[in-house]
Simulated scan of single mutants.
Amino acid sequence: MAKLYFRYGTVGSAKTMNLLAVAHNYRHQNKNVLLLKPKLDTRFGVDVIKSRSGLTMDADVLVETDTVLTEDILDEIHCILVDEAQFLAKAFIDQLREISRHWDIPVICYGLRTDFKTELFPGSQRLLELADSIEEVKTTCAFCNRKAIFNVKFVNGIATQSGPQVELGAEEKYLPACSYCYYEQVSENHLSTPLFRDPVDLDPS
């Protein structure tokens, strides 16, 4: 039986570049890949999947809350790759789970684990509950050399924990951070008690 995979990481961890590399490898072997992305993600264009390195591919399906992957879409597909999976509804994650089971098609989902408030996205929560394989795509903190686990949101150059969970574009900028640097960035406005400093770890693993 094929598996449902969740490959998560912070912003800037090359998740989308990994996805595009997997898609390239399948297509190089003349295998059919179905590329999915949430319709709400319009940062680089409505139907464009683009990595920060500049690599791009067109999405085959733009997922909305009521999207159903029918038999004609799944016919002769060898792998399903999903970008920005954290934005998907829980019901669609359930659908991907059933596709991997009943159609024997591997489904690989890439996305953030938590938002800028360190809270799980609904789609990510369901993937953590259902995935056969959960893998971390690692990168280092933007402020030190520790492994990044959180995402810091900046508005006008100031770190914030305010705003809606899903907010694309605008003036916000998101950076990856380790736990110490995350709380250090937001502590001035949001924390009343100091945090102890973790031991320095130069190995991102």
Results as ranks from 00 to 15, higher is better:
residue 173 K to T: 10
residue 92 F to K: 02
residue 22 V to L: 11
residue 53 S to V: 01
residue 61 V to L: 02
residue 181 C to T: 01
residue 106 P to V: 03
residue 58 D to R: 11
residue 64 E to G: 05
residue 151 N to Q: 13
residue 191 L to D: 04
residue 171 E to M: 12
residue 121 F to P: 02
residue 149 I to F: 09
residue 198 D to W: 06
residue 198 D to Y: 08
residue 16 T to I: 13
residue 190 H to A: 14
residue 159 A to R: 07
residue 157 G to M: 06
residue 155 V to A: 11
residue 23 A to I: 02
residue 39 K to N: 12
residue 104 D to R: 11
residue 137 V to T: 15
residue 16 T to V: 12
residue 62 L to G: 00
residue 28 H to I: 12
residue 32 N to Q: 13
residue 42 T to A: 13
residue 154 F to D: 05
residue 92 F to M: 07
residue 11 V to G: 12
residue 172 E to W: 03
residue 119 E to G: 01
residue 156 N to T: 05
residue 115 D to E: 07
residue 10 T to C: 10
residue 5 Y to Q: 14
residue 2 A to L: 12
residue 108 I to M: 06
residue 62 L to Y: 00
residue 37 K to T: 01
residue 179 S to L: 08
residue 128 L to W: 03
residue 168 L to T: 05
residue 24 H to Y: 07
residue 83 D to S: 11
residue 117 K to G: 01
residue 14 A to V: 01
residue 88 L to G: 01
residue 81 L to E: 09
residue 165 Q to W: 01
residue 199 P to H: 13
residue 45 G to I: 07
residue 143 F to K: 12
residue 154 F to E: 08
residue 128 L to R: 04
residue 156 N to L: 03
residue 39 K to W: 04
residue 129 E to K: 04
residue 9 G to P: 02
residue 140 T to D: 05
residue 174 Y to T: 00
residue 128 L to M: 14
residue 60 D to K: 03
residue 131 A to P: 09
residue 50 K to N: 07
residue 149 I to D: 03
residue 60 D to V: 05
residue 33 V to E: 00
residue 182 Y to C: 06
residue 109 C to F: 03
residue 27 R to Q: 15
residue 112 L to Q: 02
residue 88 L to F: 07
residue 35 L to S: 07
residue 21 A to E: 15
residue 144 C to P: 04
residue 74 L to C: 09
residue 183 Y to A: 01
residue 105 I to W: 01
residue 46 V to Q: 04
residue 181 C to R: 04
residue 97 R to P: 03
residue 49 I to D: 12
residue 13 S to V: 00
residue 3 K to C: 13
residue 157 G to V: 06
residue 89 A to W: 10
residue 191 L to W: 04
residue 193 T to S: 14
residue 142 A to H: 11
residue 192 S to R: 08
residue 174 Y to D: 01
residue 78 H to L: 00
residue 49 I to K: 06
residue 103 W to R: 07
residue 173 K to V: 09
residue 43 R to M: 03
residue 199 P to L: 15
residue 121 F to S: 02
residue 176 P to Y: 14
residue 63 V to Y: 00
residue 12 G to C: 04
residue 87 F to L: 04
residue 157 G to R: 09
residue 40 L to N: 00
residue 190 H to C: 13
residue 120 L to M: 14
residue 203 D to A: 14
residue 125 Q to S: 13
residue 34 L to F: 14
residue 63 V to Q: 00
residue 131 A to W: 05
residue 184 E to Y: 13
residue 7 R to L: 15
residue 101 R to M: 14
residue 107 V to I: 06
residue 124 S to K: 10
residue 135 E to A: 08
residue 11 V to E: 12
residue 56 T to A: 15
residue 72 D to S: 14
residue 31 K to E: 04
residue 57 M to I: 09
residue 60 D to C: 08
residue 205 S to L: 15
residue 170 A to M: 10
residue 155 V to R: 13
residue 107 V to D: 01
residue 82 V to Y: 06
residue 96 L to S: 11
residue 113 R to T: 09
residue 87 F to H: 01
residue 84 E to D: 13
residue 90 K to M: 15
residue 70 T to K: 12
residue 77 I to E: 02
residue 141 C to M: 09
residue 77 I to W: 09
residue 26 Y to L: 07
residue 31 K to F: 03
residue 170 A to W: 01
residue 89 A to V: 10
residue 64 E to N: 05
residue 138 K to V: 08
residue 23 A to R: 02
residue 134 I to L: 12
residue 165 Q to A: 06
residue 136 E to I: 10
residue 82 V to H: 05
residue 196 F to V: 03
